[in-house]
Each structure stands twice: as C-alpha cells, then as structure tokens.
C-alpha cells in the first residue's frame, strides 16, 4: 500500500526526468545528420538534408518529437542506433545485465568491507585500530575510482601478467569463471568507494547503540559479547546502514560509467558514453531514461527494505 501511495510522486519524477533529458540533449550543437555523415554533409543538397531530417523525425516541432519519443518508449520501442542500425532495446538488454551484475557485486563487497571495518573501528573508539579504520575510510573516499582502476590495471597486467579484462567480455551464461574474473576488479573498485560511507555510518550507528540500556542488560544477563555485538548491537544499528547502502547504490551506478570504460565492460555506462560521443540522440535519451528508472526503482526497494528492517516505521 505504501508503494501505491508513492506512485504519483514517482511518476511525476519520471516525467520530469524525461523532459529534462530531452531538453538537455536538444541543446547539443550539431544534429544527428552531421554526426552520422561527417564532412560529407557538405555535399548534400538542401533537399537531401531536408528528406534526411524528415526520415529521422527531427524536422518536427520539439513537442511532437518529445511525444513520439515517449509514446514509442512506453510501448517498449527505444528507437534504433543510427550508426549500427541495431534496436536500442537489444543493446540495452545486454548492457543492463552487465551493469546490474557490476552494481550488485560492488554493493555486496562494499557492504561487507564497510560493515567489517566499521565494526573493527567501533570496538574501541579513539584507539589505534579506530584510527586505522577511519584512515581507510578517508582514503577510500578520497582516491578517485579512475585512479584506483588505472593503478590496478597497471600493476596486474605488468607485474603479474594477469588481466582478464584484456579478453573479450563473457556473460555469466557463456563462461562463468571468466565472467567472474572480469567482474572482480571493477566490483572491487566500486566496492571500496561504497565501503567508505558505509563504514562511517556503521561506526557512528554502532557507537550510538552501544550506549543503550538494553545492551547493558544483555551483557548483564551473561550473553556472550560476540553474540551481543552481532545480534543486539548490529541488528539495532541496521537502519542507517541500509539507508546509506541505498544512497550509495545510486552513486555506484554513476561510478560504473568510468569503471566500465577502463575495464572494457560493455555496460550501460559505456553505452551512454559511446552514444554521447557519437551524438546518437535515440540511444542516449533512451539509455539515460532506463538508467533513471533503474535508479528510482532502487530507491523504492531501499524504502521497502527499510520498513522490513524496522517494523516501527509505518
């Protein structure tokens, strides 16, 4: 029911996004024809240009272009790529899988690393281990993903002659072991970036919970310290951690753009980047729209998990 209540606001947001994407991309100087034909555009007669514009539908007024884009988008037709002629939806389907896998692995690694280091730090606030944990958090926050990726690529390929991303990309269905190897480093880079804020949130949430009366009670009645830390303290600190993870998931989708490029993964980020460089309106527009829908969906899911974790939230 909570979902239905949020539906109108979600729909307005998505409508706003579609208008925004459409407007931003229309500001781009140079249109599809000049970009797909290059300097050959110069030899075309005005009539030929006119008929090409008609063919691509960019002779119509903006409102008309927007409406025709939206109506076909909603019926599942995302247009087609000007350069290869392939339907955008076919490209998007495989790219979406890559990015989702990357985002999922990145988040899992991030949560694992972040919560562990957060717990490690919070055991004794102000101690050397706390300092070490916080120092890791700060570095993970400050070292850009592209620096970390470039360093990993250099060290792995040159010192260890190991670079699975140098081979052609394999989906998990074609070659699972290869796929996992190709996903390892990119997920790690994203995971480390996500771990930093999760670590900070975990640390402060744990420190807050530890002071509560029911924790003292648990220790007092003789529950093992390990059990208290995992079942009582961590369990009751989960809400801010879940929220932070949800927020970071979105960041991760953005980080995927750079990481996919460096590790040669054919995901959504790279698809959008390539399409932007080739000025393919249809591909960019529809891909960004798919991306935004994904993002909004993830926010809804976070919200749902949030309610599951804490039944007090109505």
């Amino acid at each position: 029911m909570a979902f239905l209540k949020r539906l109108p606001s979600v729909l307005t947001t998505l409508f706003g996004i579609s208008v925004f994407v459409f407007v931003v991309l229309r500001v781009i100087p140079g249109d599809t024809i000049t970009s797909s034909l290059g300097i050959e555009t110069g030899v075309l007669t005005p009539e030929q240009i006119e008929s090409l514009r008609k063919y691509y539908g960019i002779d119509q007024p903006l409102i008309g272009q927007y409406l025709s884009w939206m109506s076909s988008f909603l019926s599942g037709d995302l247009g087609f790529s000007y350069s290869t002629g392939a339907p955008v939806w076919d490209l998007t389907k495989s790219a979406l899988l890559v990015t989702m896998q990357l985002a999922l692995f990145g988040t899992l690694l991030g949560v694992l690393i972040g919560i562990s280091i957060g717990m490690f730090s919070a055991r004794k606030p102000g101690s050397a281990r706390d300092f070490l944990g916080q120092f890791f958090g700060l570095l993970a926050l400050a070292i850009p993903g592209f620096v970390l990726s470039t360093t990993i690529v250099t060290v792995m390929a040159n010192k260890f002659q190991y670079f699975p991303n140098g081979y052609e990309y394999m989906t998990p269905f074609e070659d699972l072991s290869m796929n996992l190897q190709q996903m390892l480093f990119p997920s790690l880079v994203l995971g480390i970036a996500v771990a930093a804020p999760i670590m900070r949130t975990t640390r402060s949430a744990l420190l807050e919970t530890v002071d509560k009366d029911f924790i003292r009670t648990a220790y007092g009645k003789g529950v093992k310290p390990r059990v208290v830390r995992l079942k009582h303290v961590l369990r009751n600190s989960l809400i801010p951690i879940v929220t932070m993870t949800g927020i970071q998931f979105g960041y991760l989708l953005g980080g995927a753009v750079i990481v996919e490029k460096i590790f040669a993964l054919p995901g959504m980020g790279r698809q959008i980047l390539d399409a932007i460089n080739k000025r393919e309106y249809a591909t960019v527009q529809s891909s960004i729209m798919v991306f935004a829908i994904l993002f909004v969906t993830i926010n809804l899911i976070t919200d749902w998990v949030y309610r599951k974790v804490d039944p007090r939230i109505k």
Binding site: S9, T13, L14, G16, Y251, G254, V257, F291, A292, F295
Partner: peptide, 17 residues
C-alpha cells in the same frame, strides 16, 4: 519536485550529459 528530478541521476552521468 525539480530537485527530485536532478537527484534521480547519478551525478557524473548528469554532468557528462
């Protein structure tokens, strides 16, 4: 509403576009 719309994009992607 307007800020929700901008929030619905990953930052780098929006900046890129």
């Amino acid at each position: 509403r307007a800020s929700d719309v901008i929030f619905a994009f990953p930052a780098i992607l929006l900046a890129l576009a």
